[in-house]
């Protein structure tokens, strides 16, 4: 296991590459989901306020 982690001495280059890749993959999912969720909430709010009675204002 230690032998594998050492990557023949190249670990300071190999593992940061993989970690950064993981970070980019996770962040893209998070941002995309958050932006889609925001759009959904916004659309829902508009749809509801459009359907609500306009009498009181």
């Amino acid at each position: 296991m230690m032998h594998w982690l050492a990557m023949g001495g190249y670990w300071p280059y190999v593992w940061p590459s993989y970690l950064l890749t993981l970070l980019v993959l996770v962040l893209n999912v998070t941002f995309a989901q958050r932006s889609a969720q925001r759009a959904r909430m916004d659309a829902l709010r508009r749809a509801q306020s459009a359907a609500a009675p306009q009498g009181r204002s």
């Binding site: 995309a32 889609a36 759009a39 916004d42 508009r46």
Partner: peptide, 12 residues
Amino acid sequence: VRARGEVLRRER
């Protein structure tokens, strides 16, 4: 995922 959100925003 992003494009669906974008479509919702444009077509709201």
